[in-house]
Amino acid sequence: MKFPLIGLFCVVLFGSWESKAQRKITSHLVSLNNLGEFNPVTSNWKLASAVRFSPSTDENSFEPGTGIVLDLPVKPDTGHLFTNMKHGDIDLEFDFIIARKSNSGVYLQGRYEVQIYDSWGVETPAFYDCGGIYQRWDENRGSKKGFEGKAPDQNASKAPGAWQHFKIVFRAPRFDKNGRKTANARFVRVVLNGVVIHENVEVTGPTRSAAFDDERTLGPLMFQGDHGPVAIRNIQYTLL
């Protein structure tokens, strides 16, 4: 009778481990029925059911409703959008649409930016083009204040006014028990509109215009709200 009991114990224990693993990799779709999953929310961010950005003019329109979060920055209301959720390692994906000549970005942990930009038709993209990992900035570096950053491997951007899609796999920086960093943050993979544009790119510190100057194990997602109209929908993430 001992062996069946041991077997039962192993089954129960394995089942417990399996259920915990499943809970850890459960995906979450951010509700855009309201803005309750974000904090703080400035007046430039609003909900919509439809958004239209002209690909050739500055004419933009939207229909009030739910399902889309829309940024229409007008000074002095140009705040960024932060999630209540704070993450370490994460798989993230979302749809976005930008206006002509517009500029935004998503900051992993509020610190490391993947650029959102109207890069339609650019033949040789730079770090500031859509999908680029933005450069770092240091006022004490003399004439080369901007450094690092990485251009996307190719330009996979659609025209302004078209919905686009990001998939980002991010690995947070590592720290030892004394708080000393032992590994840099890393973009394991970035996919724009189905095209892999980055693989295994290290970031040695927060990129320019990050919300925080330090590095930590956890931080919120941040969508930049001060450089032009942008809309986001279908925000889904998996905390690893």
Rank of each mutant, 00 (worst) to 15 (best):
F147C: 08
F212E: 03
S157H: 06
D71T: 09
Q115F: 12
P152N: 00
R52L: 06
N34G: 03
V106W: 05
M222Q: 10
T83N: 08
Q135D: 14
F9E: 04
V195K: 13
Y237H: 08
S209P: 00
L47F: 02
P173W: 01
K177Y: 11
L72G: 02
V201G: 06
K101P: 03
A211M: 10
I6Q: 06
E63F: 00
Q224P: 06
F187E: 07
K86T: 14
Y107N: 12
G131F: 04
L240G: 12
F53E: 04
V188P: 00
K144M: 08
T217V: 13
E199Y: 01
G15I: 06
K2Y: 11
V190T: 08
H165M: 13
N44C: 04
A211F: 07
P76H: 00
L108P: 11
A162C: 13
R136P: 08
K24D: 12
P220T: 03
V12E: 06
K86L: 07
T66A: 11
K158W: 08
P229E: 01
L47A: 02
Q22M: 13
A99G: 08
R100M: 05
N84L: 14
E18N: 11
P55T: 01
K46H: 10
V12T: 09
I168E: 06
G194D: 00
Q22I: 11
R52C: 01
G228L: 07
D226I: 01
V30L: 08
I232G: 04
G149S: 10
R136Q: 15
S61K: 12
E202H: 02
Y107T: 10
V230A: 03
K24H: 11
S104W: 00
R52N: 15
N140L: 07
V188D: 15
N33Q: 09
P4Y: 10
E123Y: 00
Q109F: 06
A99E: 05
R136S: 15
P220Y: 08
A210Y: 11
N155G: 05
P152H: 03
G110A: 10
L192G: 13
F38K: 08
E37S: 13
L8Y: 08
F62K: 04
Y128H: 13
V195N: 05
A99N: 03
E63W: 05
R171N: 12
M1N: 12
K150F: 15
A159I: 03
T78P: 02
F147V: 07
G142W: 09
K144C: 05
G161V: 02
G15R: 09
S43D: 07
I68C: 03
G15C: 10
